[in-house]
């Protein structure tokens, strides 16, 4: 439930702003000049704010579509990401957002039309190359769909650009918008998972695994291309049993031949973000165990990381062909 809406003066009359405000008639509406006046201020506590985040409606300026960092993305294509929203409805303890932003408020950039123009410019700029556009980097692509209508707005756009691919990354079960329309062959709906015990402990407010799998099954039956994202891989003493069970649960429900891609990546965080997260949650086991720094990125000690990654890769390959498995490479 949103109790407070901050609205940039510049977008106060934008149709999408009006639409969102109408959804929350009882919320207090506060005008601001730029969202950074609220979102980027020093002296904010992400953990305290996360209990009751406000929604900020703003215009995104500058570079709207960015290249993904090296090592991310599927295969040898051009990979871009764009963020129509900052912050996520869920509260996953491993998520870098809590270390990256000072504020836990949600920012929704309402100028979808500018994002679409920027994506079109990239598509024509890389004419002939396959371009991927990821939307779930700074938020969950679908979790806030009833409010943002992001998918509803961008699916027709990508339907009109079959030469480009898009990925909606989510932990949500908000799939109605997908079920209600014709399948778009260049859209991948990618769901993230961690094993049950880890999910229950670290992924707060996230729908249970079985509900996410049920949503995926429905989408698969309708013909949507699906992705599976096991990123981050979280270590625990009996990780083998946990991941075995997770994969067995997943592939009991999903047909491997209907999958577009599966990716996995070890738990890792840039050191500066880790320090922010540790300050917020000093009593969190995830941050208390021993991590190693390699090129500014903290991860499990190399042996442990390789053990977890190798095991999960082997297990996955028992269920899926190798050509749809994409490990995420982190700096060596």
């Amino acid at each position: 439930m949103i109790h407070t809406l901050y609205v940039e003066e510049e977008v106060a009359e934008h149709p999408r702003t009006r639409e969102v405000c109408e959804r929350f008639p009882r919320a207090v509406r506060i005008l601001c000049r730029r969202y950074g006046e609220i979102f980027n201020r020093k002296a904010q506590n992400f953990r305290l704010q996360k209990r009751n985040p406000a929604l900020i409606l703003a215009r995104k300026h500058g570079r709207l579509v960015l290249e993904t960092p090296p090592g991310y993305g599927l295969g040898d294509h051009r990979h871009f990401y764009f963020s129509h929203m900052l912050n996520c409805l869920y509260d996953c303890r491993y998520c870098f957002l809590q270390g990256m932003y000072r504020s836990a408020h949600y920012v929704l950039f309402v100028n979808y039309e500018d994002f679409r123009s920027a994506i079109e410019a990239k598509i024509s700029g890389f004419c002939g190359e396959t371009c991927f556009f990821y939307s779930g980097y700074d938020c969950d692509s679908l979790a806030f769909e009833p409010v943002t209508r992001f998918a509803e707005n961008f699916l027709p756009f990508f339907a009109g650009h079959p030469e480009a691919w898009t990925e909606f990354r989510t932990k949500s079960t908000q799939i109605q918008v997908l079920l209600e329309r014709k399948v778009i062959p260049n859209c991948v709906v990618a769901f993230s998972f961690t094993p049950l015990g880890i999910s229950e402990t670290l992924e707060h407010r996230v729908p249970p695994i079985e509900k996410r799998l049920k949503a995926m099954k429905e989408l698969q039956e309708r013909g949507w291309k699906l992705g599976l994202r096991f990123d981050p891989l979280i270590y625990q003493p009996d990780f083998r049993a946990h991941y075995e069970r997770l994969y067995s649960d997943v592939f009991r429900v999903l047909r491997p031949e209907g999958l577009h891609s599966v990716s996995l990546g070890p738990f890792r965080l840039p050191k500066s973000l880790y320090e922010n997260m540790y300050r917020l949650y000093p009593d969190e086991k995830l941050f208390a165990i021993s991590l190693e720094e390699r090129k500014g990125v903290l991860s499990y000690p190399r042996g442990l990381e390789e053990e977890v990654t190798a095991f999960c890769t082997r297990e996955l390959l028992r269920h899926i062909p190798g050509d749809i498995l994409f490990p995420c490479h982190v700096p060596a």
Binding site: G197, Q236, P237, L286, I289, S290
Partner: peptide, 10 residues
């Protein structure tokens, strides 16, 4: 940590 005596969960 690395000997696996420390679970992440729970």
């Amino acid at each position: 940590s690395s000997a696996g005596r420390v679970p992440t969960e729970g």
